[in-house]
């Protein structure tokens, strides 16, 4: 345990002074904020155009839908980016230190190989948690500055209340966060298996994108694949359904079985990849 704590402190010491870490933490928040700003400009432009041309007159408007929809979309974008960056960061974490030789000092002086890998995994999770927390906080603040939030109302009829929206967003976020540890474990497995950091990052991102595409071809079986629940470029996460729900759409069909799978399927996959990483790291040349 002492060795693990030492390794974790050493990892955090380097992470706090690394530009790569800052990028992983800050970039998702920045991108989701930019998306919110662009959506707000587009929304304001459309409203101005409709007001000038009178085209919007007589059409039904859904109050509050834009604000919630934009916020959920921005969060989804932020989580997509966070997922990809965490996979890349996890892939770089071990392979980069192996390339520079920096992990040799730790392994000779103070830490076992497994404790070092465990510390790196925890380090990536801490950075991931910071990244998600910052992105959610910044997106919420920016959205609040740009829009007024309230229940989604159409013609005086409340389609969905604020509390219900909050509950749906919360559930959507939890379900989208559950597969992230498995994504990190994939990055780590690639990191300990490849020859160098460039190969590790390329392979980890390539595999993630390949799995993303692959899930569309798997039919119902894709429900057992962790990437099916990850916010991604081909988004099938529950958060994409939440985006429609909070816009007042009533045609969102949610399969309870898929929600169940979302909650447990990523964990055994993460476990298998972590165990495989621990076995590989014990026997490979460093």
């Amino acid at each position: 345990m002492d060795a693990f704590i030492t390794a974790l402190r050493a990892e955090l010491y380097v992470a706090l002074r690394s530009n790569s870490t800052r990028l992983v933490v800050v970039l998702p928040a920045l991108i989701s904020s930019v998306q919110l700003l662009l959506l707000s400009f587009r929304s304001a432009g459309e409203q101005a155009r409709e007001a000038l041309s009178g085209q919007g007159f007589g059409q039904t408007s859904v109050a509050g839908a834009d604000a919630w929809g934009a916020l959920v979309d921005a969060m989804s974008t932020g989580l997509t980016l966070t997922g990809l960056m965490l996979v890349a960061y996890a892939a770089w974490s071990f392979a980069g230190d192996r390339d520079s030789g920096a992990l040799r000092h730790l392994l000779i002086r103070r830490v076992s190989r497994r404790a070092l890998l465990a510390a790196k995994l925890v380090n990536v999770h801490i950075i991931g948690a910071l990244s998600v927390a910052l992105m959610l906080a910044v997106a919420t603040l920016v959205a609040n500055a740009l829009w007024d939030f309230g229940p989604v109302v159409e013609d005086g009829y409340e389609l969905i209340g604020t509390q219900e929206i909050h509950a749906e967003i919360r559930l959507g976020l939890i379900l989208a966060l559950i597969p992230l540890p498995a994504a990190i474990a994939l990055g780590t497995l690639v990191s300990v298996s490849t020859q160098n950091a460039t190969q590790a990052i390329t392979a980890a991102l390539g595999l993630t994108l390949a799995l993303d595409i692959f899930k569309g071809l798997m039919g119902d079986a894709s429900g057992y694949l962790y990437v099916s629940y990850q916010a991604s470029l081909l988004n099938e996460s529950y958060l994409s359904d939440v985006s429609r729900l909070v816009r007042g759409f009533s045609d969102v069909l949610i399969d309870p079985a898929a929600l169940q799978l979302n909650q447990w399927a990523p964990w055994p996959q993460m476990l298998v990849m972590v165990v495989a990483s621990l076995i590989i790291v014990q026997y490979r040349k460093l």
């Binding site: 380097v14 002074r17 530009n19 790569s20 520079s100 030789g101 920096a102 040799r104």
Partner: peptide, 10 residues
């Protein structure tokens, strides 16, 4: 080691 094994960003 032959190649100085230190974190290049520090």
């Amino acid at each position: 080691f032959d190649a100085p094994s230190l974190h290049p960003a520090l």
